[in-house]
């Protein structure tokens, strides 16, 4: 087994689940004894990815969001957030800072924040099939 522990959540794309998802990941990550700053970074990145599913993947209906969290052997938290929504036609463009299809309520900074707050970050997407965000954060070991 390459991982120490894991959890999988599935929930509908309702905005009330944004706070639930980031709190659930923070609780799960607590066993790694993260610092306040590390926890803040992880909660922010999860909030961004889940909000994207709610706002962009399922713009006119409610769909399913899957969140998988694993703890890898080197004190790393591994997170996958997945939807079966509309997908992203031009990923390169979507990843650019300030690119948004969301209008005045969005700023186009979500992917930029995930990338800068996590140790590693990647997105795969298929138009019509869905999007998957994979992030990792290596946590400092505290004495």
């Amino acid at each position: 087994m390459k991982f120490e522990n894991y959890m999988i959540l599935e929930f509908p794309s309702k905005s009330a689940n944004e706070s639930f998802a980031r709190a659930a990941v923070a609780c799960f990550a607590a066993q790694l004894d993260p610092t306040m700053e590390e926890l803040g970074d992880i909660r922010t990145a999860v909030s961004e990815a889940v909000t994207n599913c709610i706002v962009h993947a399922y713009p006119n209906d409610i769909g399913l969001i899957t969140l998988r969290c694993r703890i890898l052997k080197d004190n790393t938290l591994d997170i996958v957030i997945k939807d079966k929504g509309i997908g992203i036609p031009d990923l390169e463009q979507a990843l650019k800072p300030m690119f948004t299809t969301g209008g005045f309520e969005r700023s186009g900074m979500g992917f930029t924040i995930m990338e800068s707050f996590m140790t590693s970050f990647s997105v795969t997407s298929q138009p019509g099939k869905g999007t998957s965000v994979h992030m990792r954060r290596k946590l400092q070991r505290r004495k």
């Binding site: 922010t44 961004e48 005045f104 700023s107």
Partner: peptide
């Protein structure tokens, strides 16, 4: 106590 990119839109507006 917490803010994500949605807060950026609040400030920009």
């Amino acid at each position: 106590t917490f803010m994500d990119s949605s807060g950026i839109a609040v400030v920009i507006n």
